[in-house]
C-alpha cells in the first residue's frame, strides 16, 4: 500500500451533534486506496501549536473523498472544527492495517493490496460490529464495504452494537440502518436502548435463549425457528469487529476468548509520527511490542496484552 502526503481540500465541515463533527476532504489519491480500519494523519495548522499531526480513522471513503468523524477533545480537534470549506489540509495516508474481511471482488480489483489474512472466514458468517463512543468512526466504513460483498446474502447478517455514555452521544444509527444492518444501542445511563456497557449487551445477546432478542438468522436458513442463535460451537462462524476505549476492548477480548469468537479490535493511541518511525505508539502483544500505527491499528483481540 502506497502512503501519500497530499494537500486535501476541505469539501465540507459541520457539527453533527454535541461535540461531534464531520469533515469531508477531497483527496482522490488517498481515498482510492483506503481500506476500513485504516487512518490518516493530519497537520491541522502550519505553526508549532499543536506541533504534531493528529491521527483520524477513516469514517467513509469513495473514489474521491474521505470523510472523518471526530469529537472535539483538545486543541487540535478544536482548531480542526473551525476550518472552513475551501481551505486545504496536509494529509498523510492511508495508514496502518485495517480490518480483515472478505472484500468484494470489484473493490479488490481496483486496489493493489490484498487484506492481510484473506481467510474467507467472514464469508457467510455473522458479523458483529461493536462500537464504544467515538469508536464508531471506522466501523461505518467497514459496514459499507461488508454490505457490498457479493456473498452477503442478507444484510441483516450484520449486527451493529452502538455504545455511548448517553443518548446524545449515540452516533450513526441512521447510517447503519440505511445499509440494512440490525442496530442495537446501549447507553451507560439508560437514556437510550440497553442500560449498561455495550459489552454487557453483547454478552446478553450471545448467551440468551430468546431468538427475538437476536437478529433473525432463520431468514437465510442458518437457523431453524426457535433454535438458539449462538452458542460456543456456532459462535465459531461469527466474527466481532470492535473499536472503542481500551477497557471496552479488554472486555471484547475476554468475550472473544470465553465464547471462542474471533475478534478484531482497532486500538486508539497517541501518535507522534503515525508512520512507524518514532516507535512511540506501541502496545504489548504476545510477540512483544508492536506499533499501533504500523502493525495496527487493527489487531486480533487475542494477541493484545491488556493490563
Amino acid at each position: 500500500m502506497k502512503i501519500l502526503q497530499c494537500k486535501a481540500k476541505i469539501v465540507s465541515s459541520r457539527r453533527i451533534q454535541g461535540d461531534y463533527y464531520k469533515i469531508v476532504l477531497a483527496s482522490p489519491e488517498i481515498a482510492a486506496g483506503a481500506l476500513p480500519g485504516q487512518f490518516i494523519s493530519v497537520k491541522i495548522d502550519g505553526d508549532y501549536q499543536p506541533l504534531l499531526r493528529r491521527p483520524f480513522s477513516i469514517h467513509r471513503a469513495n473514489k474521491r473523498e474521505l470523510e472523518i468523524l471526530y469529537a472535539v477533545v483538545g486543541e487540535g480537534t478544536r482548531l480542526l472544527s473551525q476550518k472552513k470549506p475551501g481551505k486545504h489540509l496536509d494529509v498523510i495516508g492511508p495508514l496502518g492495517n485495517g480490518f480483515d474481511y472478505e472484500r468484494p471482488l470489484d473493490v479488490a480489483r481496483g486496489r493493489r493490496s490484498t487484506p492481510r489474512r484473506c481467510s474467507g472466514q467472514a464469508n457467510d458468517g455473522r458479523l458483529i460490529l461493536v462500537a464504544g463512543g467515538m469508536g464508531v468512526a471506522p466501523l461505518l466504513f467497514l459496514a459499507e464495504q461488508l454490505v457490498c460483498r457479493p456473498s452477503s446474502v442478507v444484510r441483516k447478517n450484520i449486527l451493529v452494537l452502538l455504545g455511548a455514555k448517553n443518548k446524545k452521544e449515540v452516533l450513526c444509527v441512521k447510517e447503519f440502518k440505511k445499509l440494512g444492518c440490525e442496530v442495537k444501542i446501549s447507553t451507560d445511563n439508560g437514556s437510550m436502548g440497553f442500560k449498561g456497557k455495550v459489552t454487557d449487551l453483547l454478552k446478553i445477546l450471545l448467551t440468551t435463549n430468546d431468538p427475538s432478542t437476536w437478529f433473525d438468522f432463520a431468514h437465510h436458513g442458518s437457523l431453524g425457528a426457535g433454535e438458539r442463535p449462538l452458542d460456543v460451537t456456532r459462535g465459531r462462524r461469527t466474527t466481532i469487529y470492535a473499536c472503542g476505549p481500551r477497557p471496552m476492548l479488554r472486555a471484547i477480548s475476554h468475550i472473544s476468548l470465553k465464547y471462542n469468537i474471533p475478534a478484531q479490535i482497532s486500538l486508539e493511541e497517541h501518535m507522534s509520527c503515525a508512520i512507524g518511525a518514532c516507535m512511540g505508539c506501541v502496545v504489548g502483544t504476545l510477540q512483544g511490542f508492536k506499533r499501533v500505527c504500523k502493525e495496527g491499528p487493527v489487531f486480533a483481540a487475542d494477541e493484545i496484552i491488556f493490563w
Binding site: Y48, L51, C281
Partner: peptide
C-alpha cells in the same frame, strides 16, 4: 532491546517528550 513501556511520547508546548 524491547524498549520502555507505553506511553512513550507526548506532545508539549512547541515540542514533544519521548522515552522510547
Amino acid at each position: 532491546r524491547q524498549g520502555n513501556p507505553a506511553p512513550r511520547t507526548c506532545e508539549t508546548p512547541a515540542g514533544m517528550l519521548n522515552s522510547i
